[in-house]
Computed example of a mutant assay.
Amino acid sequence: MQPLARRFTQCGSLTMLFGVFIILFGVSSTALTTFGKTNNQPPPTHVPIVKGRECNAHDDCSAIDRTSCVKDPNDYKLRCLCGDDSPPSAGQCPDVLKGLRHKCNSNNDCEDGMVCQFENSNRTIGVSKFMSSKTKLCLCDNDNGYVEDILHDICSGANLQTLANILASICSLVLPFVVSAHMRKHF
């Protein structure tokens, strides 16, 4: 009986080993059908990276509608970019909400957490040191708790009043349970 049991153990081991190879290397029908075929697809074409025109001030971008002179997120150079920080395509920009430091006319032009206002003269964050303060820009809404994140060139933060309201709501929901548990200890 022992030689027969040994054979079953060896067969079981081989079956297990074969199963592991199938799992690790996988058997796919595409590998079987594409074996020996030539690749008929053309090689990928390299699309040049489109960049906006370099600029020094917003006035340099006046020839291209809906662009502003802002920091390019890819190479950090000042360029004429659309409101979503993309370069204009065929001289046109999509009608989108504008990001940080883009020219604007009203708050409705700017993304959430931003307001359209003149640059504060004593504010020296980012590129504002050499940008004109005669132009209204989309800036972080400091009055509602949004601050400029210089590293990522975005507005971050939250409305502190909303945060306080949420915390007060949580406390009002939890407080009865805490008081009830405290009262049970004394009785």
Rank of each mutant, 00 (worst) to 15 (best):
T9D: 11
F35E: 14
D72F: 08
T34F: 13
N142S: 13
M131K: 10
Q41K: 06
F177H: 10
N74R: 14
C69M: 06
F21I: 06
P87C: 01
G36Q: 00
H58A: 05
S133A: 13
M183W: 01
T124Q: 04
V50T: 07
T15N: 07
C110G: 06
D75G: 09
A63D: 02
C155M: 06
P44V: 04
K185D: 11
S29R: 04
S128L: 15
T34I: 06
L175T: 06
C104P: 01
I170P: 04
K136P: 08
C11D: 03
S62K: 07
S62V: 04
G12I: 15
M114W: 00
P176Q: 14
F8Y: 15
L151A: 14
K51I: 01
L4P: 01
L100V: 06
F118N: 02
L32N: 13
C138S: 02
L97F: 08
D141L: 03
N39R: 04
G12P: 14
A164I: 08
T135E: 13
V27M: 04
A90Q: 11
H186Y: 11
I49M: 09
A90M: 14
C138M: 13
D85I: 09
N142G: 12
A164Y: 03
D60N: 06
K37E: 08
V127M: 12
V147G: 15
T30C: 14
L163E: 10
D75E: 11
S180I: 05
N56R: 08
G157R: 00
D84Y: 13
N122V: 03
C80Y: 00
G113L: 05
S180N: 10
L24G: 01
L97S: 12
V174F: 12
K98A: 02
P94Y: 05
D153G: 09
Q41G: 05
S86R: 06
K98L: 01
V47M: 11
G91M: 10
N40W: 07
I154D: 04
